[in-house]
């Protein structure tokens, strides 16, 4: 599946999305594909424009490079996710505090889930009903 033009161009203006010979994006782990899909879904929902996305991604990559990022493509979706989190914060969708609290909830949920069972947020022992 080729990329939507807007996304392809926006990303290309910053750092091109890793793609295979046939033009389809290559993900190195399931979470990368999820971060990618969330971005598309939020764009389709009208939360941001592709130029806004490009600016957010560029800012994250610049930040990472200043912090000694290997800059070899292996951390591409790490920057992608950081950009998405930051945009979500700027747009008032999810604050940093909400994200941090929710990450802790998922962590507790995972640890309370026997291996082989679905990890669900409800498994968090501190979850309030």
């Amino acid at each position: 599946m080729s990329l939507p033009d807007g996304l392809r161009d926006a990303a290309a203006s910053v750092a091109p999305i890793p793609r295979g010979e046939d033009g389809a994006p290559v993900f190195r782990a399931p979470w990368e594909a999820q971060a990618f899909a969330m971005t598309l879904a939020l764009y389709e929902r009208g939360l941001f424009t592709w130029p806004e996305w490009a600016a957010a991604l560029a800012a994250e990559i610049k930040r990472a490079q200043a912090a000694g990022d290997p800059d070899d493509g292996s951390t591409y979706y790490l920057h992608w996710l950081s950009a998405l989190e930051r945009l979500a914060g700027e747009k008032g969708v999810a604050s940093e505090r909400e994200l941090v609290e929710r990450q802790a909830a998922w962590d507790r949920a995972a640890r309370a889930t026997p291996h082989g069972r679905p990890i669900l947020l409800e498994n968090d022992p501190e979850a309030r009903r």
Binding site: E85, P114, H115, R117, I119
Partner: peptide, 14 residues
């Protein structure tokens, strides 16, 4: 028990 990596936690949280 199960475990999620820090990056998986971030994706699931968001």
């Amino acid at each position: 028990h199960s475990e999620l990596s820090p990056i998986e936690l971030r994706v699931r949280a968001l």
